[in-house]
């Protein structure tokens, strides 16, 4: 039994329990808002999963989510055309992803630190050079922009469509393309992949670029949803939530294991959990505790199911 199936089982059980216990939980409206509430998280998690499957980690995602959309909103307020503002932010995100990838693949820095540091750099530089305030609102007159966060299509909110789109695209990429399969090979055994002729360095760079692009997309959706950006989100536990979702479904931080389905399943479990707790009016801290205990349970179960083989475990994996 894989972790993915276990998490799916937990989701279903929780879903049934909450449907019986909480009035209004199983209504269509609530279910849509459930998925919608985690779609930004899900999009980020899909990007993170691509990096993690290639045995990396991208801690700079949230810096992009925090700074670049805020800058876009600020420029919209200054009268810059939407396309220019968005495209230049996407350009910067691309550059950040490229820099991350180069640092990890060519300078050979550990991903944990290079992305931790680049996140701090992006946030710091953005905060001091790009942004005038850390809290930015959308001025009236930008309904086109707000639509990506607030409109519906076929009765389903756009953020959910975006989540579905990103997940399907990533799934097809990972399971149907040569580069996707190579990514698994690289995450499973980097050295073996390198020796068998896979261009591991460009592939690594590509994963970080994808992750950054996904991050700016998620950031823009988030900004449009609430019509504002608080750059202080950088210091929140958001990045941990993203990792939680990725790992929960069974994408191993060791790389090479898990799939987009497992990310979607993880996202759904968190969504059900969060939604149930919101309905039960739990405060934010209690939500965090419950969420963490669930993750802890998943980690322990994973360890029981796939105990670490002390003989073949890789040194230095933390």
């Amino acid at each position: 039994m894989t972790q993915e199936v276990i998490v799916l089982g937990m989701t279903v059980v929780l879903f049934i329990v909450l449907s019986i216990a909480l009035r209004g939980f199983a209504s269509t409206g609530n279910l849509l808002s459930l998925v919608r509430s985690v779609s930004v998280l899900g999009v980020l998690a899909v990007g993170m999963a691509v990096v993690v499957i290639g045995r990396g980690l991208d801690l700079s995602q949230v810096a992009i989510v925090a700074v670049l959309p805020a800058w876009v909103l600020q420029r919209l307020g200054q009268g810059v055309p939407t396309s220019t503002a968005v495209l230049s932010a996407v350009g910067i995100a691309l550059a950040v992803g490229l820099a991350n990838g180069l640092l990890v693949a060519f300078v050979e820095l550990p991903a944990l630190f290079s992305t931790l540091a680049s996140g701090m750099l992006v946030y710091g530089l953005g905060r001091s050079l790009l942004l005038e305030r850390s809290f930015v609102y959308v001025n009236p007159g930008h309904e086109g922009f707000l639509a990506i966060g607030q409109a519906n299509f076929l009765g389903v909110p756009i953020p959910v469509w975006i989540f579905i789109g990103v997940a399907v695209a990533a799934h097809l990429f990972l399971s149907r393309t040569q580069r996707g399969r190579f990514l698994y090979a690289m995450g499973d055994n980097y050295e073996a992949a390198r020796l068998s002729g896979i261009a591991v360095r460009p592939l690594t760079v590509m994963t970080y670029v994808l992750s950054s692009l996904v991050a700016i997309l998620a950031g823009l959706v988030l900004a449009a949803e609430v019509a504002s950006v608080n750059a202080q989100i950088f210091t929140s536990t958001m990045i941990f939530d993203v990792i939680l979702v990725v790992v929960l479904g069974g994408v191993s931080l060791l790389g090479g294991r898990g799939s987009i389905t497992s990310v979607v399943v993880g996202t759904l479990l968190i969504g059900v959990l969060l939604n149930g707790m919101v309905i039960m009016n739990f405060d934010n801290n209690v939500q965090n505790i419950v969420k963490s205990i669930v993750l802890l349970g998943a980690i322990i179960v994973d360890n029981r199911l796939h105990p670490r083989d002390e003989e073949t475990a890789r040194q230095g994996d933390i």
Partner: peptide
């Protein structure tokens, strides 16, 4: 933001 830049 600069302190975080320097640290990073």
């Amino acid at each position: 933001g600069m302190s975080s830049v320097v640290l990073g």
